[in-house]
Nucleic acid binder design. Structure first.
Lengths: 195, 195
DNA sequence: GTCTATAGTATGATAGAC
DNA sequence: GTCTATCATACTATAGAC
């Protein structure tokens, strides 16, 4: 019992980050005030600075955590083996991971321009690392004959844009289950990459 | 010579809209002040209200004009005839149109959440009209045997996301000409939609 | 048509009481 | 750890001079 009564650092910290993520996703980083975030958490504006250096750090930390989570999760799931099998796993993983974190994904795409130059570089590096994963699978697939793409980088960008686009239109409880969506997207992706 | 000396309404109005578009695209609607727009144009902040009702109207008007331009331009270009030919025309048109108006496209996607509820509905209706164009071509293509898609709406959304994604990575003077990019994207789109 | 001045309010961040 | 109070600054929009 070394901790003081009334110390909620481990509870309030995550709540601040969650509130900021929700509000940034809904209204945009620039449109949200520290007072709004504080109100959502149930503390005063000044108290937020116990959990974050400033508003910029709040944004950067959540974007960086998101990108790291994306890269780590793929590392864990990557089945290895044939490029065709790896890409199918990636398509399903990408759709699931992005649908489960709609708010973080939204922020990661929309708020790049609100990062300081150094923070922008850091996040862009992480994004490139993910794009490189996809590009690598397509290149390998070209080599072993699983795919026949003219330009692995272009095709990687096309595939990523297509998959992330699910977030903009899919709504739970609609006509199609997410599993069905994964199925059809994988079918489209596969066909688009073979001779 | 009915106009007063010093009257520049027809000149300043468009300059205000152009400056706003440039600044909103670069920094985001919420992050841009009326003072910044005025400075860019070379007038005082108060003078902007001669050319727009308020900041919201500035945003809505540019988004609405963009969506109308998109729909009108396709109407003019649509070759009719077989769905396969129409879709190829649309793929090339979409890439070209969106690449030529990067700032307007960026705003149309990013600033939806900064529209008032009524304005949001209006823009969303225009967007749906465009999506309906693509979906219609795919449905017709299913009927006449040009395409074999399981769900025309899903495939329309997938195609649109893929094509608009070009804006996020293509840079003029890079490895590939835009014509080459159109070629490869059309190849991917076509293959993804046939048996 | 554009200016200056200003009303009224909100902002990010900090200092110091408890 | 959280509060209140506050600094210094910025904001949108309007009024009224020219």
């Amino acid at each position: 019992m070394a901790r003081k009564t009334g110390s909620h650092s481990e509870i309030t910290g995550p709540r601040v980050r969650a509130a900021a993520e929700r509000l940034f996703a809904r209204h945009g980083f620039a449109a949200v005030s520290m007072r709004q975030i504080a109100a959502e958490v149930g503390v005063q504006a000044g108290a937020l600075y116990l959990y974050t250096k400033d508003k910029q750090a709040l944004l950067f930390d959540m974007m960086d955590a998101h990108m790291i989570a994306l890269l780590d999760a793929w590392q864990d799931i990557d089945p290895g083996g044939r490029p065709m099998a790896r890409l199918e796993a990636l398509v399903r993983f990408h759709i699931q991971f992005h649908m489960e974190r709609q708010e973080a994904v939204f922020i990661a795409y929309m708020e790049l321009r609100n990062l300081t130059p150094e923070n922008y570089v850091a996040i862009t590096e992480r994004r490139k690392a993910y794009e490189h994963v996809v590009e690598g699978i397509l290149s390998d697939g070209n080599t072993v004959g699983d795919f026949a793409v003219e330009d692995a980088h272009l095709s990687a960008m096309a595939v990523i844009a297509m998959l992330t686009g699910v977030n903009t239109w899919y709504r739970e409880g609609g006509r199609l289950s997410l599993e069905r969506v994964e199925e059809i997207y994988w079918d489209m992706v596969r066909k688009s990459l073979v001779g």
